[in-house]
C-alpha cells in the first residue's frame, strides 16, 4: 500500500490523540472541581481532602505524570495540526464569511478553541503556582490550601481571572466534548442530539462549579474567617 501512513502521521490519528488526551483532562477537571467544591464545607474538610490527596505520593505523581503527558501531547499535536492547516490555504480569501448556521455559543466556542487553549494554559500555570506549589507572593504561602484559596480569591483581580479563564474553559469543553466524539468516530446521528446536550451540560456544570468558588469568596459567602 503505497499511500499508507501510520497512525501517528495522519490527521485523523493525531486528532484521535488530541481527543483522547482531552478526555483524560476532561475527567480530571470534573474530579478536580468536585473535590474543590468542598470549600463550601469549611476549612477542615478542604484541608483534610488536600492531605488525603498527598497521603500516597506515588499515586499522586502517577496522576500528575498522566496529566502532564496528556497536556503536552494535547498541545503539541494541536500546534502541529494548526501549522499544517495554515499551510493548506496559503492565500486567504478577500472576503471571509461563515457558511454554517450553528448556535452562536458553539460557533464562538469552535472559533476560539485555538485561543481558549493558550489562555486556559496560562491559567493552569498560574493556578499551579497559586495552589499546588502555594508560592505566589502576596497571595499564597505554605500548604494551608483553604487559606491560600480564600486569600487569592479575596483579590478581585485574581478572582476575575479565574472566572474569565473558567468561562473559556467551559467553552473549550463544550466544543471539545462534542468534538472528541467526532474525532474518535463515536458520533452517530441517532445519539447526536443527546451527545450535544451532554457536552453542553457537562461544560456548564464544570464552569458553574468552578466559577461559583471565587465568586463566593469575593462576596464573602465563604472564607469570612480569613482576614
Amino acid at each position: 500500500m503505497e499511500n499508507a501512513l501510520t497512525l501517528t502521521q495522519t490527521g485523523i490519528g493525531k486528532k484521535a490523540a488530541v481527543a483522547l488526551t482531552g478526555a483524560v483532562m476532561f475527567g480530571f477537571v470534573l474530579v478536580h472541581m468536585l473535590g474543590n467544591l468542598q470549600i463550601f464545607l469549611g476549612r477542615e474538610t478542604l484541608n483534610h481532602y488536600s492531605e488525603m490527596l498527598h497521603a500516597v505520593p506515588e499515586l499522586l505523581w502517577v496522576a500528575r505524570a498522566v496529566l502532564l503527558v496528556s497536556v503536552v501531547t494535547h498541545i503539541t499535536l494541536t500546534v502541529d495540526l494548526a501549522l499544517r492547516n495554515a499551510k493548506a490555504r496559503p492565500t486567504a480569501y478577500r472576503v471571509s464569511a461563515d457558511v454554517g448556521r450553528q448556535d452562536p455559543l458553539m460557533r464562538y466556542a469552535r472559533k476560539t478553541m485555538i485561543l481558549s487553549g493558550p489562555i486556559v494554559l496560562s491559567f493552569i500555570v498560574f493556578h499551579l503556582a497559586h495552589l499546588t506549589l502555594g508560592e505566589v507572593p502576596g497571595l499564597a504561602h505554605g500548604q494551608d490550601v483553604y487559606e491560600n484559596v480564600v486569600r487569592g480569591f479575596q483579590n478581585p483581580v485574581v478572582a476575575g481571572f479565574y472566572v474569565f479563564a473558567n468561562i473559556l474553559l467551559g467553552l473549550h469543553l463544550y466544543h471539545g466534548g462534542h468534538s472528541l466524539l467526532q474525532s474518535l468516530g463515536l458520533r452517530n446521528p441517532r445519539l447526536d442530539p443527546r451527545a450535544r446536550t451532554a457536552a453542553a451540560a457537562f461544560a456548564a456544570a464544570v464552569t458553574v462549579g468552578n466559577v461559583v468558588m471565587p465568586l463566593a469568596v469575593l462576596v464573602r459567602a465563604v472564607g469570612a474567617d480569613v482576614q
Partner: peptide, 19 residues
C-alpha cells in the same frame, strides 16, 4: 487507510470539526 493517506499527501488540511 489508503484514501486517507492520499488525502494527506495532496496537502489538504486536517479536519478540526468546524462543519
Amino acid at each position: 487507510i489508503s484514501m486517507v493517506g492520499q488525502h494527506e499527501k495532496e496537502g489538504f488540511g486536517a479536519c478540526s470539526n468546524h462543519y
